[in-house]
Design a protein around this nucleic acid. Structure first.
Lengths: 193, 193
DNA sequence: GTCTATAATAAGATAGAC
DNA sequence: GTCTATCTTATTATAGAC
């Protein structure tokens, strides 16, 4: 995960991963026979690590704001997710199905969360199902801008601005816009994951 | 551009570009001495091609909605932009400065457009400067979801939903949500470009 | 389970002829 | 301006010893 965050999947060599892990390339290939299987192993590991965050039934917009706060303290993890998810749209990418499935699940989970918090109708006459992809898009899009220019893009504040547009009060009273991050909360998760 | 759209920058070989262009790898290297300079040439070419769209003084939210319509008819171009912009956040990427500068310019241009259309105050008490990164984020984030799952993500409709949240009327009367695209309008431009 | 050794390939780049 | 030929390096993957 560290190396993919730094260099992206394609530029990350098995030799580099092996070195960081403290064994040889061939030792690494004993556990993951191909580079592709290693990538899938990484994604599955992050999924397991994100198990708590994936308990979507308990998500609220305030939870999401805290997740964005947390992400703002972990640029490496955010970069992993951003680079890998975009890379996955290319032909025959081993992670394509993973992200396709994941985005669908996240949209559904967030739609459920929005419905639980706001009911069937949101500002502008939107349904939770129509607002969910926007919520996901804002999280991912802000991450890209923030990774490129953290000095000029206040990701947590911008996300709360969007929640304000959605009609949530979490944007105003939930957390200071540019707080110290959730240093205490050890909840993981990057991007919409 | 075509090949980068299909495979991403790193997976695109000089030999493949040369073949598509109808010359040998060495003939290509005569015009672009390194692969990095070729990438910069591609980005500059797209900038020139986007010159019309970059006349930001004339942008309005309706224009942006039409741009999203157009993008929905050109998955290859959108993919180029999505893959490349995300890839650019990795260490020492040759296009990093290009995208950093470009995102900053686009945010400023869109802030100006929002101010021209809505004045200094938007819904939720947002300023144009605070809404602009959200607008960019929604465009980019929707592109990623749409590229991964075009059957389930109606990018133009979702973008108009966001415009509705921003208080624009363009979302209702400007264009059918899932139109045939702007086949006549030859205006180019992918992503926030 | 980890190692050394070694394929087998593919890539970016250079030299020099025409 | 384009070509053939070649260099150099990096990468994924395999074979087989310990």
């Amino acid at each position: 995960m560290e190396l993919i965050a730094e260099r992206g999947y394609r530029r990350t060599s098995l030799a580099a991963v092996a070195e960081r892990a403290g064994l040889t390339q061939q030792g690494l290939l004993h556990h993951f026979p191909t580079k592709e299987l290693l990538l899938i192993g990484v994604l599955e590991a992050r999924d397991r690590w994100d198990a708590a965050a994936a308990a979507a039934g308990t998500w609220r917009t305030g939870t999401l704001a805290q997740l964005v706060d947390y992400n703002a303290t972990r640029p490496g993890v955010v970069q992993t997710y951003t680079v890998l998810s975009a890379d996955s749209v290319t032909e025959d990418h081993p992670a394509r199905e993973f992200f396709e499935t994941r985005f669908r699940a996240v949209r559904e989970a967030l739609a459920g969360a929005l419905r639980a918090e706001f009911g069937d109708t949101l500002p502008g006459g939107l349904t939770p199902e129509r607002a969910a992809p926007l919520l996901v898009a804002v999280m991912d899009g802000l991450q890209l801008q923030w990774l490129l220019d953290p000095e000029n893009v206040d990701m947590p504040a911008a996300f709360r601005d969007f929640l304000t547009l959605l009609g949530s009060v979490a944007g105003q009273d939930d957390e200071p816009a540019e707080g110290p991050g959730q240093e205490t909360a050890e909840e993981p998760g990057a991007g919409t994951g």
